[in-house]
């Protein structure tokens, strides 16, 4: 069974709407379909404006999708019962400090899901909190302090502890380490890997850092302009990229021992979301683009073992 099944998920935001007039629709997510397998880590990479955060917020029910459907563990996403929903899927935020209410103690923050989602009594809650805190390597004396007293890495552990408290099996990790220093980043990534093993979790790991995504993921999905351009096994997708955009990303990442040279592309601006192109949105930047790319948006098709890409002129090899 798949942990998550997403079909034709679309989000249209209206811009320029006033009280009396309808605005113009801007598609932030343009018909994404994908599965997240039980127990895997699916990495999602893409640059700013590619729709990765919008996608994540829809998956956890913070944003209603405009079209398409989401199935969680075989059931259609149903927010009518927030208690049940919160126990299925949880979210870890990018900015650890701002995701904690500055006027609540850590205990109050971690307790909320136990109280609201699981209806635990006081004694049971404090026992569970001790267990959770032990698993994220935090000392219990922190429980009665306030969020501003913690460093970024500690605050992110608290954020993870809150997601664990809900006991959901699927975690959406939205840039969980990008606000952290590299030495702390490694601590948190290792913690996430341990927790996954211990509790049998499924992760959707969103990041803009290709190396981090590659290090933690089983499969990687590359987004561009609100759509999936390539999805494949983590160990192959950057090495044997099929889509020119994936290749551009991989070639742009600074790597020790590689000479400094900006990878080839024709332009570097994203298409205008108010006036999206008819064909492939990457065509304007793509050095392999042909006539068909300007007119037809390519569909996602299989191009290798478990490897899909949406491109008319995929890179061979």
């Amino acid at each position: 069974m798949n942990a998550l099944e997403v079909k034709n998920l679309t989000k249209t935001f209206e811009v320029g709407k006033t009280l009396f007039t309808k605005g113009q629709g801007v598609k932030a997510v343009r018909g994404m379909s994908f599965d997240v397998r039980d127990g895997e880590t699916l990495g999602i990479v893409g640059e700013s404006g590619c729709g990765k955060s919008t996608l994540a917020r829809m998956l956890v029910g913070l944003l209603p999708p405009s079209e398409g459907d989401i199935q969680i563990e075989g059931k259609v996403q149903d927010k009518a019962n927030p208690r049940e929903f919160g126990q299925m899927i949880q979210y870890v935020f990018q900015d650890p400090i701002s995701s904690l209410n500055p006027r609540k103690t850590i205990r109050q923050i971690i307790e909320t899901p136990l109280k609201r989602l699981h209806g635990m009594g006081k004694a049971e809650r404090s026992k569970r909190i001790s267990e959770i805190f032990a698993s994220v390597n935090l000392r219990e004396e922190f429980l009665d302090r306030y969020p501003h007293e913690f460093s970024g890495g500690q605050a992110q552990r608290i954020g993870i502890a809150r997601a664990l408290a809900a006991a959901a099996r699927i975690l959406i990790l939205d840039e969980p380490v990008s606000a952290l220093d590299v030495s702390v980043q490694a601590q948190v990534l290792n913690l996430l890997a341990e927790l996954k093993k211990e509790f049998g979790l499924t992760y959707l790991f969103i990041s803009h850092d290709l190396a981090v995504v590659e290090a933690v993921s089983d499969r990687v999905m590359v987004l561009y302009f609100g759509a999936i351009v390539e999805v494949g096994p983590a160990d192959a997708i950057f090495k044997h990229a099929k889509h020119p955009y994936t290749k551009l990303l991989a070639d742009s990442a600074p790597v020790v021992g590689r000479a400094l040279e900006a990878p080839k592309q024709k332009a570097d601006e994203l298409p205008d979301p108010l006036n999206p192109p008819k064909g492939c949105p990457f065509a304007k930047r793509c050095i392999y683009a042909t006539d068909i790319c300007e007119t037809t948006d390519p569909a996602l098709i299989e191009m290798g073992e478990d490897h899909f890409a949406a491109c008319h002129n995929p890179i061979k090899g």
Binding site: R57, V60, G61, L62, P82, R83, G86, Q90, Y91, F93, Q94, D95, S98, S99, L100, N101, P102, T112, P113, R116, L117, G159, R162, A166
Partner: peptide, 11 residues
């Protein structure tokens, strides 16, 4: 974000 987090905690 902490308001989103509270919502996901079932409030």
């Amino acid at each position: 974000e902490f308001v989103d987090a509270a919502r996901l905690s079932g409030m």
